[in-house]
Write a protein that binds this DNA or RNA. Structure first.
Lengths: 155, 155
DNA sequence: TCGATTGGGCACCAATCTGGTGCTAATTGA
DNA sequence: TCAATTAGCACCAGATTGGTGCCCAATCGA
């Protein structure tokens, strides 16, 4: 259905919540109560983000999570990749790299290269260009990229 | 998993196959054999496309399907909407329209408007700007939209 | 007229994904 | 020690997805 999962949604909400609060650790409970998100599931998500080195985690009474890098350096693409795995651009692209030039017999519609593949690539590129910062302050995204037609920005 | 369905993939493949062949009807069998796609499923997809007036269908021995409009006028967004339903931009957006101005209590993270919503909107806009033609000849898309940074085109 | 070929409708299925929960252990500050 | 927190693992019900079976309806050519 072309949709990101709830996991990703919760992850992004949590990350946005932590923007510009580096240093102090925010607990999963605080986030879950603030945005009415299932705590256990959110914890699962944050754990994954920690595994992928997008957040630091600390146990104990005053523990919690905080961003590892500034919001300008974290892309939506990274978050999605961490929480649902990088979109498999299977077929041609991957084969291209591995066997350099041979015909592709795995992807049946290869000669044309499946339209869906191309669309997925496009979406993927967009997400890799969209930072956490631009989610917090959309204006940032547009004003800092004047040469890009605002109409065509992801957000 | 942020992915379009196989149905959509098959639909796009079929539509691309029919580009610039208005007039003669292409059978589901021909397409399925050309691209090694399950015939019955493809038929189901084409039926939906016909229902949404994206293709004409004709029964009988020499029947099949053909595009209703030229490839420049059919957008990927339309195809996706036909085959998997328009992405529900639930919550704020829809409520905004219906009750004009009240607080949104359905979408918990509403005050911030869920980051995921925004991303979804961006993707959706992109798909609505991407035509079938640009899937056939990517060059078309870029050269005809010179004011858009090529980096930011969907395809 | 008859048969072959095509799309249309409906039901159905197995596998997978998704959202979510329970429980217990380990860590840490007060 | 106690309370709060993250970590790990298993588990579950429901929805979605990809795909198939079967028969009917239309249409064309012989």
């Amino acid at each position: 259905m072309l949709q990101l999962t709830k996991r990703t949604e919760y992850g992004l909400i949590a990350l946005v919540h932590m923007v510009d609060r580096r240093g102090d650790f925010v607990s999963a409970r605080e986030i879950s109560e603030t945005y009415q998100v299932p705590r256990r599931l959110l914890a699962e998500v944050l754990k994954d983000l920690a595994k992928h080195a997008l957040v630091d985690s600390q146990r104990g009474a005053t523990g919690g999570y905080c961003l590892v890098r500034p919001a300008e350096e974290i892309t939506v693409g990274e978050v999605v990749a961490a929480l649902e795995g990088a979109p498999k651009l299977a077929g041609c692209e991957t084969l291209e790299a591995s066997r350099a030039g041979g015909e592709c017999d795995l992807e049946p519609s290869c000669p044309i290269r499946s339209p869906l593949q191309r669309i997925r690539e496009g979406i993927w590129r967009q997400m890799q260009r969209t930072t956490l910062r631009s989610l917090v302050e959309p204006v940032f995204h547009i004003t800092n990229l004047k040469h890009v037609d605002p109409e065509s920005t992801l957000i």
